[in-house]
């Protein structure tokens, strides 16, 4: 049986790891490669690196960083942030990324998912979805949650799967940064119709939160940032506690 995955997420700006609280007030917390190596040693199952830099120049800095990460760590990692074309995906593949994650660009042009999946396989494409509940409707947002779109979360998740994405990384913007638990109901609802794995993101504050989203929420993986970066919940402690609850964990 495939184990449920624990995934630390590292937001990278100009080569350093930062963590935004509701995507505001960025704080620098450490070297991206050294943190990845440390997480791998602690038992992280996978890593996600998101480039949150805005400028073109920082793109090449990030590509070089991806090469260093690929050389330094021996577990799979996904990179995302600003991927808008097949060329961007190819560049990151060549740098050693195991998977790439697309977000806003796929919302603007959904064919991007089919193009990358068609060329490099579904296992290479993670589709990140940021959404929040607006007037009772789960609405897909872009640009760090600041721009609501016309798309509805569940319809978009279904489309993304049909277009060939290999995984969905759904972040509830209502829960992100709160440390009050994941959007469990929404993950459970997704599991009803999705055949591809779902990574839960946004809201992890305790071991209970993570256990809940992996069981009641039926998520395949739990992603978190600050609770790991600040050492609130060490990964070995978390994994031992989840195992004790009968969850399949590496």
């Amino acid at each position: 049986m495939v184990a449920k995955r624990i995934i630390p997420c590292l937001d990278v700006k100009d080569g350093a790891v930062v963590k935004g609280i509701n995507f505001e007030g960025l704080r620098e917390v450490g070297d991206a490669v050294a943190m990845g190596v440390e997480y791998s040693r602690q038992g992280a199952d996978e890593l996600v690196y998101l480039d949150i830099s805005a400028s073109k120049e920082s793109r090449s800095t990030f590509t070089q960083l991806v090469e260093r990460i690929a050389l330094g760590i021996d577990i799979p990692f996904t990179v995302g942030g600003g991927i808008g074309s097949l060329d961007d995906a190819a560049r990151l593949l060549d740098s050693g990324a195991d998977k790439i994650s697309v977000n806003s660009a796929a919302v603007a042009r959904p064919e991007l998912i089919s193009e990358i999946a068609g060329r490099y396989g579904s296992q290479f494409v993670v589709c990140a979805i940021d959404a929040k509940c607006i007037d009772g409707r789960w609405t897909v947002t872009t640009h760090g949650g600041s721009r609501p779109t016309e798309r509805e979360l569940f319809a978009w998740a279904r489309e993304v799967q049909e277009r060939g994405a290999g995984e969905i990384l759904f972040t509830s913007m209502d829960h992100d940064g709160t440390r009050a638990g994941y959007a469990c109901e929404q993950y459970a609802q997704m599991a009803e119709f999705l055949r591809i794995p779902v990574i839960a993101s946004g809201g992890a504050g305790s071991i209970d939160d993570i256990a809940e989203v992996l069981t009641a929420g039926r998520a395949d993986a739990a992603l978190a940032a600050s609770i790991f970066h600040y050492g609130t919940i060490p990964i070995p402690t978390l994994k031992a506690a989840l195992r004790k609850r009968g969850i399949t964990i590496r």
Binding site: M1, V2, A3, R5, D45, S122, Q123, G166, E167, R195, I196, P197, D220, R250
Partner: peptide
């Protein structure tokens, strides 16, 4: 293909 065994088989397994 089956509900409890997604394809591709992706991730950590014993």
């Amino acid at each position: 293909a089956s509900a409890d065994a997604k394809v591709p088989h992706m991730g950590w397994n014993a």
